[in-house]
């Protein structure tokens, strides 16, 4: 018991390990998310541009995280004159 009491306060490595694991799980998730948004943005741009002429700056992709649900918000602004009957028919 004496030996344990002597060793216990010195064993701080498990604390370091746990703190790192929690921190890095969080940091990886938040950094990874930014990457995912960038990837989604690029792919959405390519897909939309194939069918509709539009300004790439008018595409907004956002990821919001809450405790139970994450929200992916995609906002595309398309000028009225570019939205032809053909594309409307395809969309419908």
């Amino acid at each position: 018991m004496n030996l344990l009491r002597f060793l216990k306060p010195r064993a701080t490595a498990p604390v370091a390990r746990e703190r790192l694991q929690i921190l890095l799980a969080h940091e990886r998730a938040s950094l990874g998310e930014r990457d995912l948004v960038a990837i989604l943005r690029d792919e959405l741009l390519a897909t939309i541009a194939r069918h509709i002429e539009f300004d790439p700056d008018k595409l907004s992709v956002k990821m919001e995280r809450a405790d139970s649900v994450s929200m992916l918000e995609i906002d595309v602004e398309i000028p009225a004159d570019k939205f032809t009957a053909r594309t409307r028919a395809t969309a419908a």
Partner: peptide, 16 residues
């Protein structure tokens, strides 16, 4: 220091 728990072990760092 690592074996006495004062310093992260090699396994800890590799796992992380």
């Amino acid at each position: 220091r690592s074996s006495s728990g004062e310093m992260l072990s090699i396994e800890d760092v590799l796992e992380i």
